[in-house]
Simulated assay, not measured.
Amino acid sequence: MSASPSTASRRGAVWTMLAWTAGVLFVLPVLWMVLTSLHSEQDAATNPPSPGAALTLQGYREFFGAGGGLSPWPPLLNSLTASVMSTLLVLALAVPAAYALSIKPVRKWSDVLFFFLSTKMLPAVAGLLPVYLIAEHLAVLDNVWLLVVLYTSMNLPIAVWMMRSFLSEVPVEILEASAIDGARLPTTLLRIVAPVAMPGIAATALISFIFSWNELLFARVLTGVVAGTAPVFLTSFVTSQGLFLAKVCAAATCISLPVLIAGFAAQDKLVQGLSLGAVK
């Protein structure tokens, strides 16, 4: 027996309320961080915090180097370079690999996918010392291109896994028609597969970019003055003199902006990509 319209309406209202509650709970810490960044250090350090305290941009001025502080632009540029370049390399490698595992499946493709995923089961700290020793031997410590290679290798397994599910939804008839017309593999990938799977590619690119931008452990150990990234720069605000909460919140807000902007700009593609294949 189907539910009455009133019952369905009440259920819809309950689910809507739960969704809004979950959304508010997720965004509340971010809003609190932004609000704290607009307070003075004295007001930010009060316990409990005072939401109605006077607002100031002093934390942002100090983040951008006012008063003789370090400039955030080199770390931000390093993060942007490492994240964008590694994301491009991930896509360049993940799309052909996913094509081979889905549209033109190789033998024992499920074992290949499990091998890719198993590489993410190793704790990152377990591989830190070997990577450090190799980088030291090759004289590439404190080099942003070392981070590009590392981030590519770290994000490639999950990217292949995601792209495989996305490319499985590409109609085989289109590929057969392109093969009859004599299209080669590069042409098929660029002109046929890529436009159809663009939501999945956008979702994969965004997730790879976020993972690369937020990575701290390897960047903290393998870089120094030259190639330090934005998360590493953020840790410099925690000093032996204490935690300057307003300044840390201002720095965290500025460093989070590129990821938030990218997420809002690609949210339609992200939703389409993550839901691709969920409904037949």
Rank of each mutant, 00 (worst) to 15 (best):
L91W: 04
M121A: 14
A53F: 02
A183F: 10
T36E: 02
L89C: 11
L117C: 03
L31P: 11
A45S: 04
L122C: 08
H39C: 03
P49Q: 01
C254I: 15
R61M: 04
V95M: 12
S208D: 08
M121V: 04
L55Y: 02
P123H: 13
L18S: 10
V112Q: 07
L25Q: 09
A54I: 04
R61F: 03
H137E: 12
M121R: 06
A22R: 05
M17P: 07
V95A: 06
T56L: 00
W213P: 01
T235F: 05
P157F: 04
V30Y: 14
I180R: 05
A94K: 02
A54W: 02
L113Q: 10
G242N: 01
V221S: 05
C254E: 07
K120P: 08
F116K: 04
L234K: 01
T152V: 07
L122N: 15
L141K: 14
I192S: 07
M17A: 15
M198K: 12
G67T: 01
A82P: 04
V232K: 02
V125F: 15
G65T: 02
L206Y: 00
V14K: 10
S79D: 03
A13V: 14
P123V: 07
A66Y: 07
P123Q: 13
P199H: 03
F244H: 14
H137V: 08
I180S: 01
M162E: 07
T187M: 06
L147V: 12
V90C: 00
A135E: 09
M17N: 08
S86R: 00
P49K: 00
V225N: 11
L156G: 01
D268G: 11
F233Y: 13
V160S: 05
P72Q: 06
M198S: 13
A194E: 06
A230Q: 06
I174D: 13
P186T: 11
E215A: 02
S86N: 03
P29E: 00
M154I: 14
I103S: 08
G127E: 09
I134P: 06
F233A: 15
T87D: 03
N155T: 13
S240G: 15
V24M: 09
L70R: 04
S212G: 10
L122E: 12
E41F: 01
R10F: 12
K269W: 11
V170G: 04
V144A: 06
P5Q: 04
R11A: 11
T46P: 01
A251K: 00
L138S: 11
G224E: 05
F26C: 13
L93S: 05
V90Q: 02
E176A: 09
A251M: 01
K108N: 09
P199S: 03
P130G: 07
L141C: 11
F166D: 14
L150Q: 05
S6W: 12
L276D: 02
A3E: 08
Q272I: 06
W145K: 01
Y151V: 10
I255D: 02
D142W: 03
K247A: 00
A139E: 14
L185S: 12
T253I: 07
A100K: 09
A159G: 03
L113V: 09
V84E: 04
A194T: 15
V90N: 01
V140H: 05
L206W: 02
T16Y: 10
D111F: 12
V27M: 13
L88G: 05
S153K: 08
